[in-house]
């Protein structure tokens, strides 16, 4: 009887001591199992296309003479948004160049471009699927929530275990982290298309596929572009974090600068990233605002 008193007291003061859920062990074992089982698969099937794409883009960007690059950039900004945006982009990029980190800028841009490309290639079809199959969307939602709310650092560990260090694991982590807005907004954009347009297309005998390509996707385009814009911003922030596991570019400047307490170096990298973010944001927003679908919406 007397033995019961200390046990009870212990329970009252620390009720969580009684039961121990070994989540740490479970996760460790699970990740170990995944790594052991899938490492080969990931390294032979996932790494090469990502690496190949990235290297191709990187080669194209770094081997373009900066002056030509700036000229093309101006034209892109001008066509996508306005001549002001084109001019702003050129000034911003030139400034980064004058700070002495042009090469790093190109590396970061190629990382972002690769990540965004894969986000689109995977995210848009998934978004379309979500919009057409309610059960798929129901299943996808918690996954999207997890992808978006997990702190970005958490992606890095399994990525390193699966792909070792370097650009590729950084890219994989970036792709996963940045993809949800593309999926969500593709789904949303398609679901938001008014039934009257679907009805009209159906009444003229369109197949579901024709409705998708001729009506739903074009009308969803402004929303999809908004998703793309978010994806770009997210991938830019992640590419910087990925410097910790060996991704290069401006993120590495920041990371290395901080590590060596070289505030100036970190700042240069930081300014470069902010300017790149602003340029990409203005250009993609401009793209989203163009096109008859969004102009029609505005005139309503």
């Amino acid at each position: 009887m007397n033995d019961l008193v200390p046990v009870l007291g212990g329970f009252l003061s620390d009720p969580f001591d009684l039961i121990d859920i070994p989540v740490r062990e479970w996760v460790t074992e699970f990740v170990n199992w995944i790594v052991a089982t899938f490492r080969e698969f990931f390294r032979t099937w996932i790494s090469p296309p990502v690496r190949g794409t990235m290297e191709a883009i990187q080669w194209a960007l770094t081997s373009t003479p900066p002056l030509i690059f700036l000229a093309v950039l101006f034209i892109i900004g001008w066509r996508a948004a306005s001549w002001k945006v084109g001019l702003f982009a050129v000034i911003a990029f030139a400034f980064v160049g004058f700070m002495g980190v042009w090469y790093e800028l190109m590396i970061t841009l190629s990382l972002v471009a690769t990540a965004v490309l894969f986000c689109l290639l995977i995210g848009v079809p998934l978004g379309i699927l979500c919009s057409r199959k309610d059960w798929f969307y129901t299943g996808m939602r918690p996954v999207l929530d997890i992808m978006q709310t997990t702190p970005p650092f958490v992606y890095l560990v399994p990525a390193v275990m699966l792909f070792s260090i370097g650009n590729v694991p950084g890219l994989i982590a970036t792709i996963i982290f940045a993809m949800p807005p593309t999926i969500r907004l593709t789904n949303l954009g398609i679901r938001q298309v008014q039934t009257e347009f679907i009805e009209a297309a159906t009444a003229f005998g369109s197949t579901p596929r024709q409705i998708l390509w001729k009506v739903q996707l074009p009308l969803a385009l402004p929303t999809i572009m908004a998703g793309l814009n978010q994806t770009i911003m997210l991938s830019l922030s992640m590419v910087v974090i990925a410097a910790i596991i060996g991704a290069g570019g401006l993120g590495l400047e920041v990371y290395a600068g901080l590590e060596r307490l070289n505030i100036g170096q970190a700042f240069v990298g930081g300014i470069g990233i902010v300017l790149l973010a602003m340029v990409l944001d203005r250009i993609t927003q401009g793209l989203g605002d163009k096109g008859p679908a969004s102009r029609a919406k505005k005139s309503e």
């Binding site: 009805e199 003229f204 005998g205 197949t207 009308l219 679908a293």
Partner: peptide, 24 residues
């Protein structure tokens, strides 16, 4: 069969026009 009917036999005009806004 329905698609054939809709493409070739009958067409429809809507109260709120339902013109595709992204097309000329």
């Amino acid at each position: 069969g329905l698609r054939h009917i809709r493409t070739h036999e009958m067409s429809m005009v809507f109260q709120h026009f339902a013109l595709f806004p992204h097309r000329t």
